[in-house]
Structure formats: structure tokens, C-alpha cells
Simulated scan of single mutants.
Amino acid sequence: MNEPRVPGADDDGPTAELLRARRGGELSALDRLLLHSPPVAEGWNALLGALRGATTLPADLRELVVLRVAVLNDAAFEWVSHEPIARRAGLAELQLQVLRRPDAAAEPVWTPLQAAVLAFTDASTRDVAVPEEVFAGVREHLDDRQVVELTALVGGYAMVSRFLVALAVPPPDGEVPG
């Protein structure tokens, strides 16, 4: 297995314990890199904990966004970590395969809500600016809070993927907890 461009930091101390608490006792390679900067690690932990466990978005939509961002940004760590979670959230094998296609949102395997969320994720990740018709598509299905949560989710996992790719963090052997 390849090593990240930066070695992992010491995994002792209060910040490491905060990360362990969210992850169910284990630290990931990502966590060990974040521990080089305790303030960043603590903020990251709070944000990602909220995005993963405190939004009103259904789990299938959340994992659809995470996996699509992973595909668009070529973040293998993110895909490997979240694919099992996506399956438990109800995404089917065919949907997981379609997510890897360039125009995944246009494929006929999604509910109207899932297709709208994918189009939003693609626009926000690829171009940052979300066209009005794409935004209107999610507004047909999501309330104000959920639109804010979706936007933060796309941006948050774009941050995660860029961090992982820039530091060449190799994929884990499987799911990374919470």
C-alpha cells in the first residue's frame, strides 16, 4: 500500500480522542493527517460529524452525494469508505455503477429527487455555480433547511476529496466508521 505524502501525526491527546469518539474508537489515515493541526482536526470533526449524522437529508441522498463527489474528484479513499454505507442506505448495484458515468443524473435509475440531487452535485462540484434550472430542480423536493444541508454536504465532501487527493491518501481496506 502506498503512503500519503505526509506521515500521520501522533495519535494521542484530546483532539485524537474527539476523533476516536466520532469514529467509534478507531482513527483513519485521514484523521492521522488532520492531527498535525488540532484546530483544523477539531473543526473538521465537528463539520463532518454534523454532515454525516445531524442533517435531515435521507441517508441515500447523503451517500449519493458523497460517492458522486468521490467520482468527480477521483477520490478513491472516499469511494471505498462510503460504498458500504451507500449500500446499507439503499443504493442498488446498478445505481453504484451508474454513478461512475459522466452524465449519471440523466440515467433512468434514479427517483426524481435523486436525479435532481445528482444534477446539483455535478454542477456545484464541476462548475461551483449552480444554474437556476438545476437549483429549481432540488427546490421542487427539498425545504430551505435541506437545500442548505445539501449545499454544505457537497462542499464539505469536495473539501474531503481534495484533501485526500492532494495528500495522496490511499484507500482503506473498507468502510471508515462515522
Rank of each mutant, 00 (worst) to 15 (best):
E3W: 08
A9K: 02
D11W: 03
P14D: 09
P14N: 00
E17P: 02
E17H: 10
G25Q: 12
L27M: 05
L27D: 05
R32W: 01
L33Q: 11
L35A: 00
H36L: 07
P38G: 03
G43Q: 02
L47G: 03
L61K: 04
L61A: 05
E63S: 09
V65G: 05
R68E: 00
D74W: 10
A75Y: 03
A76S: 14
A76D: 15
F77G: 01
E83Y: 07
A86G: 03
R88V: 06
R88E: 14
G90M: 15
E93N: 05
L96V: 12
R101H: 14
P102Y: 09
D103W: 01
A105Q: 01
A106Q: 03
E107M: 05
V109I: 09
V109N: 07
T111E: 12
A115W: 08
A115E: 05
A116W: 09
V117Y: 00
A119I: 11
A119Q: 06
F120C: 08
F120G: 02
T125C: 07
R126L: 04
R126P: 00
F135E: 15
E140N: 07
H141G: 06
D143Q: 10
Q146S: 08
V147Y: 11
V148L: 11
L150N: 04
T151C: 09
T151R: 04
V154S: 13
G155M: 06
Y157Q: 06
M159S: 10
V160C: 03
R162K: 06
F163R: 13
L164W: 14
L164V: 15
V165R: 10
V165A: 04
L167F: 11
L167M: 10
P172F: 09
D173T: 14
E175L: 10
V176W: 04
V176Y: 02
P177G: 02
